[in-house]
Structure formats: structure tokens, C-alpha cells
Design a protein around this nucleic acid. Structure first.
Length: 331
DNA sequence: TTCCGACAGTGGGGTCGCAAT
DNA sequence: ATTGCGACCCCACTATCGGAA
């Protein structure tokens, strides 16, 4: 493995190809509305693992955004890069598992990883940070995109160029949501790659909002005040109250304290809701009468019908809990 | 002076791996 | 063999602080 590939095509002598040990990745700012104007490139927001692909000394490696080496978890993808990309090249992109509808699915990716079935994964490349040893991060996005497309022209089909569209952000966002995508990322065409969270990368996510019955809460941990998280549920058409997960963010300090008082007052011994088998509570739970309704924002339902990325929006005093009926969580 | 970006710290679902039971 | 726990991945959000505007 120490011996470099004799076939090391492109001529860059490896002694000149020195990549920085650590390369910080660019992060996006969350926005409610996609930006307008021709200065913005819009692309799909992928739901997979963010991964830098580094090619040096004839070998490739995959590195997470916190600098963990994950080459061994995706051996096929890593091997593919070594096959076509020149030494001293770094791609920024996302490893994804595509559903039969062609959408990236994080749940499916985790399934694939746990089954060690990583063969039909793809890598969406959306940026080129180094090419043959040259640092491109100070070049404008537009130019990096152009070079990326050139480099990928000879790539195998599992390494995919992330296509972008120019202008008309809100319309592109609306279409992405109607196709059940996770959202879009908008990048300023003249921006450099700063390696921090920058206002030149904006993400606009397709979110769900739903009302849920509060069925319990957990204790606060460490310096947290009031309570830890709310347990929420909904009524199935059969009339059963079904657990839907925990909501632990979105509260101000005042809200944590005042809601805790309300919840303490309606505490009860036994749960009112049905917990799916295998539901594992990491901390002790206080059950409450199912009398309060919370409005919750979340990205999607997991395979087990549990909320993913939930956050608290507010209490709904105007809705009786018995009206919180959800027919089929997996829309 | 005000504002904003970076960071720390809380919380979620899911998976893996290790140590204790 | 099972369970608990921390560390990763994906994340949302609040509170704080120091420097830029």
C-alpha cells in the first residue's frame, strides 16, 4: 500500500502535491426563503453524509466534516476516486443512497451502512477545492463549478456532478418541495470557499408543521432548567393515542420554566399513549394527562414513525387534543 | 452604541462499538 | 447475551460574548 501506483497518470510529481492535513468545510446558513436573482446558483440539498474526497499519492480517502476518516466505511466510493482523479485533488460532496424515485434518503443510507451493503451508493460532487495540487478555494464558485464539471467528465457513473440552476430561487424551492426533496442550497456565484458558515451558502429546507398532544416530559440534564423534552403523540383513526417522539428544542428559558409548572400540575402515574414496541427511553419519563397541544416543526417521519429533527413552535390553546388525528404518518 | 458571527450547551433520531452487567 | 453509554452521523435551537460596523 505504501508503494504508489506506477500508472499515476497525470504527471504531477507527488513531491509537489501537498494537501493541507485538515480542510474545513463550508457550511450554509438556514433561511426561510430562497434568495432571488441571477447571482445565485441553486442545487439540491442532499440527505446523506457530507464527505471530502482527497486524492493524494495515488490513494483516495474520505473525510467527514469533523475530520474523521471514513474511507473504510465506503470502500467502493473511495476506490472509484483513486481510479480517475489526479493526485492533489479534493472534492466536496455528499455520499447518498438513492431511493427508487431518485431521491437521496438518509434512512436508506443508514440501512445500507448497517447491512454493509455500500455497493450502490453514489457521491454527489458539488465543489472542487484542490486540483492537481492547486488550491482553488479563493477562486469564485462559478470557476470552481466549471473545473469540477471538466474533471468529472471522465468519472464513473457513481460520481455525479451536482447540477445547479441559476436564479428564480423561490420557484426552484417550491418545485423541490413538491418533489419531496429535503430542500435546496443556494450559493453565490462569485463566492470563495471560506471554510466557515457563510452567508454565501444558504439552505432552505422543506419542513412539515403538525400539532401533537403532549403526553409527558423528561427531566432537565446538567445546566438545563425546567424540563428536558416533551413527549408527544397523536390519535390514530382507531382512537388510540400513539407516541410520536420527543421535542427538546425551540424553548426559551422562560418557556421551559412556565411550561414545567403547567406540566407538573397535570402529571399522572401511567402513560396514556401506546409506545411502539422497542421504544427505548434513555431517561425517566413523567407522564401527563393528554390535555395540551403543541405545534411542532420537523423534517420528516422516520421508518419507525418517529419525528426527525423536531422543534417546538408553540402551544395551541385553541385546539382540543382529541382533534389531533393523524391517519398515516408516513405520507 | 448596536449588531452579528462564532461558540458552547441543550435537545432530537439512528448506528456502532465497547464495557459492564 | 443483554444493556448502558459515549461517539459518531444527521440536525434545530437558545444564550452569551467579543469584535466588527
Amino acid at each position: 500500500m505504501a508503494k504508489s501506483r506506477p500508472s499515476a497518470r497525470r504527471n504531477a510529481p507527488s513531491s509537489q502535491v501537498r494537501l493541507p492535513r485538515k480542510i474545513p468545510v463550508e457550511l450554509a446558513v438556514l433561511e426561510k426563503r430562497a434568495p432571488e436573482g441571477d447571482q445565485w446558483f441553486h442545487e439540491a440539498k442532499f440527505d446523506g453524509y457530507r464527505m471530502l474526497a482527497r486524492i493524494e499519492e495515488g490513494k483516495s480517502s474520505l473525510v467527514t466534516r469533523t475530520d474523521q476518516v471514513w474511507t473504510d466505511r465506503f470502500p467502493e466510493i473511495a476506490e472509484t476516486f483513486a481510479g480517475f482523479a489526479p493526485d492533489g485533488t479534493v472534492f466536496d460532496g455528499e455520499i447518498c443512497k438513492l431511493t427508487d424515485k431518485g431521491l437521496s434518503s438518509f434512512a436508506a443510507l443508514q440501512q445500507a451502512l448497517s447491512n454493509e451493503d455500500t455497493k450502490d451508493l453514489v457521491y454527489y460532487a458539488f465543489d472542487l477545492l484542490f486540483h492537481e495540487g492547486a488550491d482553488l478555494r479563493q477562486r469564485p464558485l462559478e470557476e470552481r463549478k466549471r473545473m469540477l464539471a471538466e474533471v468529472l467528465a471522465s468519472a464513473p457513473p457513481t460520481i455525479i456532478l451536482s447540477q445547479h440552476q441559476i436564479g428564480n430561487g423561490p420557484a426552484i424551492y417550491a418545485r423541490a418541495c413538491s418533489l419531496h426533496m429535503e430542500g435546496i442550497v443556494s450559493k453565490h456565484r462569485a463566492s470563495t470557499y471560506s471554510g466557515t458558515r457563510s452567508p454565501y451558502w444558504l439552505k432552505t429546507k422543506c419542513l412539515n408543521t403538525e400539532e401533537f398532544v403532549i403526553i409527558g416530559y423528561t427531566d432537565p440534564q446538567r445546566s438545563r432548567i425546567g424540563f428536558g423534552a416533551l413527549l408527544v403523540g397523536y390519535y390514530a383513526p382507531s382512537g388510540e393515542l400513539v407516541y410520536a417522539g420527543k421535542v427538546g428544542t425551540g424553548f426559551t428559558a422562560d418557556l421551559l420554566l412556565s411550561m414545567h409548572e403547567s406540566l407538573k400540575a397535570i402529571e399522572r402515574q401511567a402513560p396514556t399513549a401506546i409506545l411502539p414496541k422497542g421504544t427505548y427511553m434513555r431517561s425517566p419519563v413523567h407522564w401527563v394527562e393528554p390535555w395540551l397541544v403543541a405545534q411542532v416543526e420537523f423534517t420528516e417521519w422516520t421508518r419507525d414513525n418517529i419525528l426527525r429533527h423536531p422543534s417546538f413552535l408553540g402551544l395551541r390553546e385553541d385546539k382540543p387534543p382529541t382533534e389531533i388525528i393523524i391517519e398515516r404518518p408516513k405520507a
